[in-house]
Simulated assay, not measured.
Amino acid sequence: MRQRASQTHGGASRVRRWTVGAAVAALLVTGGGLAGAYAIGSSTAAPAQKKVDAATARIERGTLSGTTKASGTLEYADAHDVNAGLGGVITSLPAAGAQIGLGQQLYAVDNVPVYLFHGSLPVWRSFQPGMADGPDVKQLEDDLATLGYFSGNADGTFTWATSNAIKKWQRATGQVVTGSIEPGRIVFQPTDVRVSTLDASVGSNAGPGVPVLSLTGLDKQVKVNVRLSDQALAKVGGKVSIDLPDGSSTAGVIASVGVPTEVDDATGQKSVMIPVVVALDDPAAAGDLQQASVTVDFPSETRENVLSVPIDALLAISASTFGVEIVNANGTTRRVPVKTGLFAGGRVEVSGDGISAGQNVVVPAA
């Protein structure tokens, strides 16, 4: 029970915290839950108390949104290995963390560079006169055009113009000029890449299928597992908030939702989770972080046009009744029973007779 008005406000604050905490804990134990907690008992307000010197907060009307939190990992997107496409000795490798762009060297075999080109299809054949048409040829022609070597029609047909563009590129990069490109001399990737780790070392032998580099894209993403019971919150295109290690938050959007997968939780127990990938609205918000643990807030429940108060404003009028202490115009206070609804963002939805937006309620002093 709350102390009498004649006692100090500091003592009342301590009693308020203990009684409200105990009442909320009781609701959780009995399965009531925070969002469904309701005050029970007499609706008669307590008589006015003496004037008090206390911290106050306003009863506000507006939208209150709840969230469900899940732990995730911030990392670079599209991690994958690149295997050698030809045999020889690896003579050059980039540094881990290096960014490689279109037409730049990825690594070298027998002191001959292997170059990065853009395209969604991998290299599976030589580029040479007489080859059949195909989308891989168009990828090559598009890239050579971007690099300034091809001015013909990039239509996927290997013509004299295509071979001539290859010769210009080979001459400009110090290669043997042949007008053809053997498999393994270029690597198609969808975009520019970042070197994550080195899977081989200078001096080691390369060969078809042997891992050389681990690459990622340049954009960062968050991978998070959502409980099966919360799968309705994970929808492609849904907006989320991401809490970063430095205490700041940034917005994101759900980019993909996987199928239910059995994983080991923190205690080693197996549970079924939904793998979710979140793209950052502002990639720069992650700063220099390469990998970090983050918290993802999924919007779960929203109440519009409701009254709310800080959770600390709640007091336990009895073992089964929540209330708030309203400050009257003359500085006195009165306790008013309330029904509670959604708990979210440090506030709680309240309703009941005798409360309205703009009124001040007593909160524990800091």
Rank of each mutant, 00 (worst) to 15 (best):
T8Y: 15
G10Y: 13
W18H: 12
V24F: 11
G32S: 10
G33F: 08
A39F: 08
I40H: 15
A45R: 12
A48P: 13
Q49K: 08
T56W: 09
R58E: 12
R61C: 02
T68M: 04
K69F: 04
L74G: 06
Y76G: 10
H80R: 15
D81Q: 14
S92I: 01
A96M: 11
G101T: 07
L102S: 00
Y115I: 05
H118Y: 13
P122T: 03
V123E: 12
V123P: 00
Q128F: 04
K138I: 10
L140V: 06
G148F: 06
I166M: 03
I181W: 02
I186L: 09
V187S: 02
F188N: 08
Q189P: 02
L198Y: 10
D199M: 11
G203S: 10
N205G: 11
G209L: 10
D219C: 00
Q221N: 02
L233V: 14
A234W: 06
K239I: 15
S241N: 14
A251Q: 04
G252K: 02
I254P: 04
P260Y: 12
E262C: 08
V263F: 06
Q269T: 01
S271M: 07
S271V: 08
D288N: 14
V294E: 07
T302C: 04
V309D: 08
L315T: 14
A316P: 01
I317V: 14
V327Y: 10
G331S: 07
R335T: 12
G341F: 06
N360M: 09
V362Q: 06
V362L: 08
